[in-house]
Write a protein that binds this DNA or RNA. Structure first.
Lengths: 106, 106
DNA sequence: CATCTGAGTAAGTCTTGGCTTACCGTTAGC
DNA sequence: GCTAACGGTAAGCCAAGACTTACTCAGATG
């Protein structure tokens, strides 16, 4: 149930902002933090969380760490969301059966 | 950007549990709270949050409030997620151009 | 080798929010 | 009408976590 981690991590607005910035391509912490309303260490911490959730990748390039987006980190969450639609018909059938039994039982 | 609300609301595990329970069909608070590791008022509070995020619907039936799932509440979040894949190619192109310029500039 | 820049980590603060207990209003049933 | 079930709200507590400053380390550069 790793989609839970993804949800928790993406729930924070500033962290999501950092994440969104990576859409445009790999970036060093430097650039990611620029213009954000929080300090650079804060961004570092967010990146750590994102990385641990598998949403982001990190590679060293000299003295800088280049972070890039990992779309695969989103797939579980996506599948979970999709499952709600897939379940729709099935849930309907089950529900119909349930209320049928309820009436009968009474 | 209502997907932000959805994310924030679904980030909590117990709240997500309540939400998942509604997959099986509409339920009174009673049933939703049964067996959960938290008190019934806690569940009420979670339901309020879910409702405000548009993830859940509430209807009165005598003395009980029947809650049911609102899948539409998930669509924005779903679209946001999808957009990451849609952007993939475009981001790649932009990035290619960017690094091209960078090299040229040097 | 001295210094500067990029970035992670530590420690501490302060806010957010999830939970509990206690309470109140509302409907159902004798 | 009294009492009991259902469930929302209030107040307060407590832990989690987002943020800051200060420190440290690694690589680049003169």
């Amino acid at each position: 149930m790793a989609y839970g981690n993804a949800l928790a991590v993406l729930a924070d607005p500033t962290r999501r902002q950092v994440f969104e910035r990576l859409r445009a391509g790999p970036r060093p912490v430097n650039l990611l933090a620029a213009g954000l309303p929080v300090s650079r260490p804060a961004v570092s911490q967010h990146l750590k969380a994102l990385k641990e959730a598998g949403l982001v990748e990190e590679r060293s390039e000299g003295v800088r760490r280049i972070y890039s987006l990992r779309r695969e980190g989103l797939t579980e969450l996506r599948e979970w969301l999709d499952s709600f639609w897939g379940d729709a018909l099935e849930a309907f059938k089950l529900e119909a059966e349930r209320s049928h039994k309820a009436k009968k039982g009474k």
